[in-house]
Design a protein around this nucleic acid. Sequence first.
DNA 1: GGATAATATTTACAGTGTAAATATAAACTG
DNA 2: CAGTTTATATTTACACTGTAAATATTATCC
Lengths: 195, 195
Amino acid sequence: MTDQSKYHHGNLKEALVQAGLDILHQKGLAALTLRACAVGAGVSHTAPKNHFGNLAGLMSAIAARGYQRLTETMQTGLSPDASRADRRQAAMGGYVDFARQNPGLFELMFSPQRTNSDDPDLLHHAGRCFAVLCDVSEGLIWDKSDAPDAALRAQIMHWSMVHGFAQLSASGRLDKGDMKNLEIFDVFPQFQYRD
Amino acid sequence: MTDQSKYHHGNLKEALVQAGLDILHQKGLAALTLRACAVGAGVSHTAPKNHFGNLAGLMSAIAARGYQRLTETMQTGLSPDASRADRRQAAMGGYVDFARQNPGLFELMFSPQRTNSDDPDLLHHAGRCFAVLCDVSEGLIWDKSDAPDAALRAQIMHWSMVHGFAQLSASGRLDKGDMKNLEIFDVFPQFQYRD
DNA sequence: GGATAATATTTACAGTGTAAATATAAACTG
DNA sequence: CAGTTTATATTTACACTGTAAATATTATCC
């Protein structure tokens, strides 16, 4: 079934996403074209249409895989019984590292102009990524009010902070002067948590 | 000098940027092509090369203008002697509104893959935009330490927060469930300032 | 007023995404 | 098993994109 000379590829959908990730890693977002993915998977340039419809569909699938990898990155090196403080460290640090090490993929993941923002798979994996951040934001002491949605607002603030820092860093907006060598835990170390 | 039938345009650089902004506003980032800008300015599709070199150069100029407009948006409706609290309200709210109302331009402004991140004009106007946020972050009470760079770290946190929320909102990542109608001042109302 | 530089056009070309028609292989049905 | 239908992939064609080279026009400078 892994015969190279088959007319049908067998697992083209996966192969195209994988080829896309390789291209992103090696040549950047500008080189991520439909035809290049097809070449990488060893098929004609119109084959992707059967599986993804059009370029935006393929891009969305690659972005969804990006969220999946980001979620994994935020959880690597964690024993199952790690403390919440350790989980938080891994999640926030992992988010920023991911953005810096995969600038093209990260840009694609938050690019409504290249992806279908309502793609179910994309939304699902983005939601799982958010869930990890929600977990580690638990216990944050910052909202003195007793509003019923205090937890949700703390979660969104957490995501906004981490994502904003990651994007500003990855897009080179923090490369000037004293900001150059600041890490996220230099910037957000003062929040207190009930860990 | 405003004769339409001149061989030399006279102010093509400005006209191309303006055409680009119009295209972004009316048709979105996907339609922002070098040729479309040229058509909008009424010149041949190779004329932009003389002023911007290539596509990335034109994109960078449009992004720089975007930062300029963002800075203006953050300061609109402010009397010269407005309180810092009012300035802060205008700056943070304006940042988010700008991202929502100009999603294509906002995406371009933070897209290192489409622009030249080291473009001097781009960096200058991005710096001015950051300066406005630095101004309104003054007096923020959150860092109990007396580290020498406490102010800088507070400024970066402020920018990260506002930018992260703006981007998550503009890219549709906050459109699900309870998050849908949250505004930035619902999420970040609890910080205290020495105003 | 004539040389030089700046600015814009024409033409050409390789690369892109998409659509239509066609070919091949798998899956289903009797 | 044979025949049909469906899924998958290819070929071909086309309009559109950015870039480069050669050329044309106008402004600038001495």
